[in-house]
Nucleic acid binder design. Sequence first.
DNA 1: GCACGATTGAAGCGATTGATTGATTCATCT
DNA 2: AGATGAATCAATCAATCGCTTCAATCGTGC
Lengths: 232, 232
Amino acid sequence: MNKRSGEVGKDETKDRIMLAAESLFAERGFMSVSLRDITTEASANVAAVNYYFGTKDALIDELIIQGNHPLMKARMQLLDDAEKRYQIGVVPAEVILDAVMRPMLTLLEQQGERREVYCKFMGRCMTERGNNLPVPVMRAAQRLIKRLSRMLADALPDMEPEVLAWRVHFCFGVLGHTLMHDELLREVTKGASGTPDFETTLQRMIDFCKGGLNAGSSANLVSSGSQGTFLF
Amino acid sequence: MNKRSGEVGKDETKDRIMLAAESLFAERGFMSVSLRDITTEASANVAAVNYYFGTKDALIDELIIQGNHPLMKARMQLLDDAEKRYQIGVVPAEVILDAVMRPMLTLLEQQGERREVYCKFMGRCMTERGNNLPVPVMRAAQRLIKRLSRMLADALPDMEPEVLAWRVHFCFGVLGHTLMHDELLREVTKGASGTPDFETTLQRMIDFCKGGLNAGSSANLVSSGSQGTFLF
DNA sequence: GCACGATTGAAGCGATTGATTGATTCATCT
DNA sequence: AGATGAATCAATCAATCGCTTCAATCGTGC
């Protein structure tokens, strides 16, 4: 045994550190939480972080990977199912969008009391580490986006691929912002946003994104004649 | 004169600090940039920050206020214009949305070479400081949201106020995410997103949000019977 | 030319950071 | 019982943080 007690520990130090770290990172961001904050919360020694993870960044990466992997896997699975189901035709855009958004909802249900933590942590990944994500996460994101773009291009043949890419991007923006800032909305609207549960919120999010994906594309009123003249 | 040179200085230390700080904060976030990073970039002394602003947080607040004020002012002005224009009827939702989004575009044009910095800095305000914004900024946001909700409720009388509040929230999510992560999109799509200028991007953003605002609202398939049972 | 107030600079404050050390504890195995 | 190796601890490292101090510097008005 490489553990002090012969039991399969749910109270292991490593797990306690990861749970504490996830909560604190979700609440205050990656940079604002020190190793001492984490180990104090986890009732562990500062050295334990280095012992189990090497560095703070490695701990963060492991948390991000652990959080993203089941999400990506579930999305891919749903896309598989959709393609199988619509084998003779084209997978509708709404079904594709659902496959991307729904797993966040499903995974949420499995989180129990930690669902709020999970939400904010995933939001942190998107907003604070949107660039510079761990390599496997980045690669998984690329695979998803690539597949997504291909399927949506079939579903919406009249839409320019470039416009489509941006609209997918917007959908992820809605997702990240919603995961992070629910309490901001509550404060700024002074209650007009109600107090919906996460499932209701995510359903509203999906509705909104569906409308956005299928939106008409207006002529560019402002810079139709100056495309590409700035910065790029 | 309270300045050493009688000139109106574009090279004043205070301005150099603010410019350098805005750029660095935009690029690396508020927490990751030290006063020494700022003063080195600005060719100034560390004490100058304390001399002109008091603390690092005060500097950040001043930058946020300075960045947000003209934006809010322009939005309110456009809403005024719209209400005047549609005095006999109701201001359409699209016009309202335009009034909120368009000033970001207009202000961008005034930023010249610093437009990219301005974009990212505003994005940082939304994503890293979404809560805990300076009091005047928070109040301005509340005024805007309140007015927005009222006008949109008139424009979309069939939509539940709560759903409307969330859809407005989603719009700001799209805005913030777009301002922050354009290069992420470019990397993850490997070029499929093209290299549009900011004006084109913002126009696409507005189109998307219009579609989202006007989207149909599907029945809640998942938790229609469990509203309010979790966390809230 | 001299004093004054505004501004700048070098140096350092105490506190905190991520990371490391070497000793120690303890279950396990021979 | 003794040896082994995983796990934990207190203590400390150098580096960096925001912030302060105090003297030097500068233009300006007297």
